[in-house]
């Protein structure tokens, strides 16, 4: 399995394919690279082996980190992509790029459709405010009107199972409660492209089951799901294709079972 097997990758990667016509949602990465600039005074300490992702200048000072290189794939409605890889392989950076939080330093990202991302459980909430207030804030931040938010409030409260805790400040919540609420909010507004980081695995078994049900319901409505996780079960339950990131590059791509098998074999 090599990179040219990536799902939907155009055979002539040099020529840029046309932007799809019509109204269908899609998300396409074209040779995306992300470089973090470093301006500190980190010096090379005579290492014999270099991590190829670190960029040094002539005076052996660290100038940047190439977190992602040459990432290409093409997702259409109904696609469910798993991002697999070790810690530090660039999974979260890739998700942040896809979510539009950071912009790529190379290549292009083209998409149509609302993107909702849950990349870090602890961010994007106002900890001093109540759960109900955060439903409002997250809804407004995602671009919905107050009317739309009120219509969804009941459903969010039920899915999160937080009950009266929604009237308490969020800094009194446990990690699991926060996660339930943020997941409930993010999925309540029927997003078209949903991007989830591995934190979902922090939930208990009952919640994971309901989260999986909700994601499947969402994908059956022809959305796009992108999920990064270390959980074998979560990936197999939710994804059809997979990308294995290694050192910021795609090491393998294809049907999720094959990619996951290759990845797990490399670990042993």
């Amino acid at each position: 399995m090599n990179k040219s097997d990536a799902p939907g990758t155009s055979p002539n990667a040099s020529g840029l394919p046309a932007i799809p016509e019509g109204d269908d949602i899609f998300l396409r990465a074209e040779n995306i690279g992300v470089k973090f600039e470093v301006s500190g005074n980190v010096r090379e300490q005579g290492l014999s082996e270099h991590d190829p992702r670190l960029i040094w200048n002539r005076r052996h000072q660290l100038r940047g980190v190439k977190a992602l290189s040459d990432i290409s794939f093409d997702l259409k409605k109904g696609d469910r992509l798993a991002i697999i890889g070790r810690n530090g392989s660039g999974k979260t950076t890739l998700l942040q790029t896809l979510a539009g939080i950071i912009s790529p330093s190379e290549g292009r990202l083209i998409s149509r459709g609302n993107i909702t991302s849950l990349i870090n459980i602890n961010i994007g909430i106002q900890a001093e405010a109540t759960g109900h207030r955060n439903i409002t804030l997250r809804g407004l931040a995602a671009g919905y009107s107050r009317k739309e938010i009120e219509e969804k409030r009941q459903g969010i409260a039920e899915f999160s199972e937080l009950g009266d805790f929604l009237n308490m400040p969020m800094d009194s919540y446990s990690a699991g409660m926060r996660m339930r609420l943020t997941f409930a909010i993010a999925t309540a507004f029927s997003p078209e492209i949903l991007i989830l980081d591995e934190w979902l695995s922090a939930g208990d078994v009952a919640f994971k089951k309901r989260a999986t049900d909700r994601m499947q319901e969402f994908v059956s409505q022809a959305g796009i799901l992108i999920l990064a996780s270390h959980s074998h079960k979560l990936i197999m339950d939710n994804c059809a294709t997979g990308i294995w990131l290694d050192g910021g590059r795609i090491r393998a791509a294809g049907p999720v079972a094959d990619v996951l098998k290759a990845y797990e074999e490399s670990m042993t």
Partner: peptide
Amino acid sequence: TRPVRISTTDRFNPMIVLTDLVDGAKRVHL
């Protein structure tokens, strides 16, 4: 046809400031 979002490298793009100011102003409720 809904708009296509293209995110790409902008080494220097002053226009993005104007777009940002207008988009931000629209989010008055937020």
